[in-house]
Design a binder for these strands. Structure first.
Lengths: 356, 356
DNA sequence: TTGTACGCGTTATCAT
DNA sequence: ATGATAACGCGTACAA
């Protein structure tokens, strides 16, 4: 019975997969000529070029990428490695925006973006350095696993860090976190706050360390008898800030520089639980300026970092490296900016500031 | 002068890229045998297998993926297509979580995930259907571009929709949005609210339509003289809800079912601007239950949809399709759940409900 | 300007 | 169980 299946069956799966040879035959030229047309080589006569292009267009032919990358040793795929634990990864709006910038650059430069998220399996280093898969990759440089670092350093596939890595000889792009910390504290001091606390980011990251450093530098310089107890540990996530608020209030702080907008929201929630309002009772400045975290109630004053832009730039750095593999490692530091909204109380305190 | 470049130059680029032949020579066997070992073919004697595996391990050899997929016609890369405009994409926590579920499945099944975000360039359909790049892809089915739909339907590369597409003959996975809408409204009615409004999602999407439908069904059945004017248009994003709050308050509503948590936050902010508190003055229920949107102040009562899980499941459906290309299209609807927190006022109104 | 021929590294078929 | 050999589709040096 099965044997009675009509032969029209074969028409269902066309399996017509086109290739250079078929196009060449249709155009009455050789395979090489078609290849040259596709790759925009100069030495093709105008008539032939047009004829071939017409056929390619009409048939919808697209060259096989596997074959192409096997031969040319270029896959035109670049990787994005996010080596953080999956649970915290996407509750932080930083990563989506970063990914967006990177994806946009890949679109613009006609690259395919492969996404690697370190999960339960530890062989992400294997996958990323696997031959013939990626031309290079961009890697978020927080909490890199030892085995992963070793793997990528031993391979000769180019990569660019996002965020300053521990070994600063590698190419990386980052924002000026120290300046960001300074800007925040200076603004609070300008507004007349007396006792300014800091809830840190994850101090295993350079971003967390540097934001703290900026805070400390300004506090030590401008506030006599600066008390290190005004610093509380956080981890960039909301809950960590929520928890430490009561202890800070007990110390009598009137403003807090919080190392991420997520945590700023946690802090505001913690203050609300204590019946305290922002900015009337306590002034708050966050860090990141990423939607939707800033549109809390009240709107957050924060330090803007151009995440989307440096995701884009990271790809460009990588592509440069691919063009010229012997180029020097490149380090780029992007600027940050104070964005004044409601949570710092600038509007209420403006007149007071004017007096100085 | 150039001719005087020392020949040691050649040593700089080791170009030692291993391949089957080199491994074969080291092991004293043929290329085929090495290939068999790598692919776990049964017909290899134990001694040879161990010897070859040892060399592979010691050298760190990994087969070239381009060559492999050229020959086997399997790239082991699957695509994720997010065909929304880039600006709104990542301000919605839905997409990061979805991506996370998909990435996890790709890890588990040893697939590489390629991310395609529809940007300014319109040739995403070209890229996705390009031969030899993807084995298949998963596509978020909101607002598909005409040209894109045509492209993927004409190609014979398998795909699975996330969210019910307009043509329900395709494989897709979705949640029961109608039930979600019903659950929300029923809960508000149970709590004794009298005038329940709805701020819709983007009504160009089936999710937006279905949540509205669930609302309408319950309201028409259980509230006599249901007023269609209680429905306001939104687009899933915060700002759209923020704007319509005043008009709803004028109509005297005492509760709002909002079609996304993002919008729920916008609504709460809008109410705060009018001096109204949630849930004391107005009860709110959202939809999504995605961190961090739910940890607003107050914590959101909302409809939970298992976004991470259905991202994962979508990949599994795609992989099944790859195994068995002639299989029937598959449609999967996942369940939703009411999560009671603070914004609906259940705690305050509990006793009142008990009386009934 | 165009065509011929070889090789990229792998898997699969066919011998042995 | 193992090895020789033929594809897979493409790019390019070289020849014409």
């Amino acid at each position: 019975m099965l044997g009675s299946i009509p032969t029209t069956f074969f028409f269902l799966k066309p399996m017509t997969s086109l290739n250079l040879i078929k196009i060449a035959k249709m155009a009455g030229v050789s395979r090489s000529t078609v290849s040259r047309v596709i790759n925009d080589h100069p030495n093709v006569s105008e008539g032939v070029r047009e004829r071939v292009q017409r056929i390619i267009h009409d048939t919808g032919f697209q060259p096989n990428l596997s074959a192409r990358s096997l031969r040319s040793r270029r896959s035109n795929i670049i990787g994005l490695v996010l080596p953080q634990t999956m649970d915290t990864l996407f509750s932080d709006p930083y990563f989506p925006v970063l990914t967006q910038g990177i994806a946009r650059a890949c679109n613009d430069y006609k690259k395919t973006l492969a996404l690697f998220i370190e999960g339960s399996d530890k062989d992400i280093g294997q996958r990323v350095t696997q031959e013939g898969l990626l031309d290079g990759f961009v890697v978020q440089s927080v909490k890199l696993q030892e085995s992963f670092s070793k793997k990528i350093l031993n391979s000769n596939i180019p990569f660019v860090f996002i965020g300053r890595p521990d070994d600063p000889r590698h190419s990386f792009i980052d924002v000026d976190n120290i300046k960001g910390g300074k800007l925040a504290v200076q603004h609070l001091l300008n507004l007349g706050y007396q006792k300014i606390a800091h809830i840190t980011g994850d101090l295993d990251t350079n971003a967390g360390k540097d934001r703290l450093l900026g805070y400390q530098m300004v506090m030590q310089e401008l506030t006599p008898g600066f008390d290190e107890n005004l610093v509380c540990m956080g981890d960039f996530l909301e809950e960590s800030a929520y928890k430490v608020v009561p202890s800070l209030i007990q110390k009598g702080v009137d403003a807090i520089f919080v190392a991420s907008d997520q945590m700023a929201r946690g802090a505001i929630r913690g203050l609300a639980d204590l019946g305290l309002r922002v900015p009337e009772d306590v002034g708050i400045i966050g860090f990141d300026d990423l939607s939707p975290a800033v549109s809390a109630n009240p709107m957050l004053t924060t330090i803007h970092q151009p995440v989307r832009e440096f995701g884009y730039k990271a790809v460009e750095m990588l592509l440069e490296k691919l063009e010229n593999e012997d180029a020097q490692a490149q380090q780029v530091i992007m600027d940050v900016e104070l964005i004044i909204r409601d949570s710092c109380g600038a509007k209420q305190r403006f007149i007071e500031v004017e007096r100085h």
